[in-house]
């Protein structure tokens, strides 16, 4: 479903890629129900590197999954890359994901029976069925080269280290040239050096105009994002949660109590990329 963005009241150049309104994800019913995301208002601009941080169970992964189209909200609306994805069927959502989102997860989730190159090719095939086999192979090779793994194209996931598997996952996420990459704890299983390599790859994608949503526990990593979004108990913003390294306390969600403030303003700018 295509969605027409309203004209920005401020008339600025900010063009949101993600626009969540009253976004809620609840599991179960009645007293046994559990809220993962509670009435979240959020906008993420095109080409932005946004980081979501928060303690375990705060709902950051749930929010990331909703934005990536891996899950459906129980209430609210969610527009990503011009499509109202909360109203898509499972199959349409899958097709939309293939074309618009690259996903990088902590556990890599490479298909175990396919080689590194085949895993990347498969993402291309699912997103762009008309691409010829030869072109797929070329682009897969380029993607592997961009993450420095040209020599490991024929390796199976079990024959790669964790860091290498995650680099393949990043290559797989980027090969389709998505408008958004959602990376959920992409460095969580990696050593520091591998973590830096992966983050640099994601930052490189932002430099090419891709929006990256980084979900992480790592405050140092989050500090390198354009914006840091803090979550607690399924909601955005918690002034009492303390500082994020590299940021002023007042910058962090410090405007929550101000009247007539948009959800966008409840996030703090990161240092830079």
């Amino acid at each position: 479903m295509e969605f027409t963005w309203p004209i920005s009241p401020s008339g600025s150049a900010y063009r949101p890629l993600v626009q969540a309104t009253d976004l809620t994800r609840r599991w179960g019913k009645g007293t046994a129900s559990h809220l993962g995301v509670d009435n979240v208002e959020l906008s993420i601009g095109q080409g932005e590197l946004a980081a979501i941080v928060g303690p375990s169970g705060s709902g950051k992964s749930t929010l990331g999954s909703l934005i990536a189209g891996l899950d459906q909200p129980t209430a609210g609306s969610l527009v990503v890359a011009g499509t109202r994805i909360d109203q898509l069927s499972n199959d349409r959502l899958a097709r939309w994901r293939g074309s618009n989102v690259g996903i990088v997860l902590q556990n890599f989730h490479l298909l175990p029976t396919l080689t590194a190159a085949e895993n990347i090719e498969l993402a291309l095939k699912l997103s762009e069925s008309r691409v010829s086999r030869r072109e797929r192979r070329n682009r897969s090779g380029e993607a592997l080269a961009s993450v420095g793994l040209s020599d490991k194209a024929k390796r199976l996931p079990t024959q790669l280290s964790g860091g290498e598997q995650q680099r393949v996952a990043v290559a797989r996420a980027m090969v389709t040239m998505p408008r958004l990459i959602v990376a959920d704890e992409p460095t969580g299983s990696l050593d520091q050096e591998s973590g830096h390599i992966v983050f640099d790859l994601l930052a490189g994608a932002v430099a090419n105009g891709t929006t990256v949503l980084l979900i992480t526990h790592d405050h140092e990593l989050a500090g390198q994002a354009d914006r840091v979004i803090r979550m607690l108990d399924g909601r955005i913003g918690d002034p009492s949660a303390g500082d994020i390294p590299g940021q002023q306390s007042s910058d962090v969600l410090g405007h929550r109590d101000e009247p007539n403030q948009s959800a966008d303003e409840l996030v703090s700018p990161g240092r830079h990329r």
Partner: peptide, 16 residues
């Protein structure tokens, strides 16, 4: 199921 979920995550549909 996790492998299939990964396939779905990168755009695989039920029919795939």
């Amino acid at each position: 199921r996790h492998e299939f979920a990964a396939l779905e995550a990168i755009g695989g549909r039920r029919r795939d």
